[in-house]
Amino acid sequence: MSRVVEVVAGTLIDRDGRFLLGSRPEGKPYAGYWEFPGGKIEPGEAPFAALKREFHEELGIDVEEATPWLTKVHVYEHSTVRLRFYRVWRWMGEFEMREGQTIAWQTPGELTVGPMLPANGAILKALELPSLLPITCAHEIGEEVILKRLAEAPPAAVLVREPGYTREALARFVVEVAARVRPAGGKVFVNADPAWLAGLPVDGVHLSEARLMAADSRPDFAWVGASIHGAESKAKAEALGVDYLLLGHVKATPTHPGAAPLGWDGFECRLADGCPLPVYALGGLAAADLPDAFAHGAQGVALMRGAWR
């Protein structure tokens, strides 16, 4: 591999959940393509300092709050770059197009500009995922509780996980979940053998770590997630090209009695200098843990029992 160019990029997210893209100006490689604003990290410069500098130089704004997100290596014809993405939650100032570029606010899943810089396809898909991912536990608290909550407040996505359910029982429950979530625009992911899901109203399959490690190729679903616990399964998930990961357990949880939790430092360590996939923190967490999850590089928080209280 040629020398890797260290680059930082920021995804500005406004109050409506939209994100900002900018066009590459004339004179640069891929001129006219759209990208997330950012630029090269100078020697000895910290990534967050580079992010603040680039946004001030390019767009005239001052970044006030940002959290690390995804790290992706991409090989272009002219160079190999390591892109460190941040989500930018708060900034000050008025936008100034200081390099003659154009900007556009976009809604996740509804891109209206193009073409996109090749490295950014997976980033756009990650933006369609919510910060909170509820996981069903009907085998513990009953289907009625979960279906009632889903009808009252359909989430942007839900993961159906019901160990011990027969294929027929799971199919029936998935149909009930989908009837409450999908009409509102939400996604239904199911933790099961992919073969079980043929013909069911689902958007994706979630692979247990065992199924992930046994897989020879990515299952044929629009969305594929996976559970991981260490470097080996993380590498397999990246090679398989899944769309998101669950990593835990961060705090003590009844699902793993007596097992030592990772803690937030352990969670961040497992990501090993970043990850190209969005990672949900899992295990004993609540919506109130989102700030800690963001600060340690997570996509958000996956909730099991805490989602249905």
Results as ranks from 00 to 15, higher is better:
E77G: 10
G93V: 08
D203W: 02
G32I: 09
V175T: 15
A66C: 05
W91T: 09
E65I: 02
L200G: 02
Y165I: 12
W223V: 10
D14W: 10
K28P: 04
C137A: 15
A104T: 05
H229P: 05
D216G: 13
S23V: 01
E64G: 04
A226P: 08
T11E: 14
P261Y: 01
L247R: 11
L285D: 09
I13R: 10
V177G: 02
G121V: 07
N191A: 09
D193P: 04
L212R: 07
K52N: 06
V202C: 02
R53C: 01
P261F: 00
L127T: 08
P276D: 07
H56L: 13
L12S: 09
A272F: 10
G10W: 00
P154R: 14
V224T: 07
P37E: 08
S131F: 11
S217P: 04
G142V: 08
E209H: 05
L124T: 02
L132Q: 11
L285R: 13
R24P: 07
A231S: 15
V7K: 15
L262H: 10
L246C: 12
A184G: 10
H249V: 01
S23N: 04
D216N: 15
P163E: 06
A192I: 00
G27M: 03
G283E: 06
P37V: 01
S227K: 12
D273K: 15
V160T: 01
A259P: 03
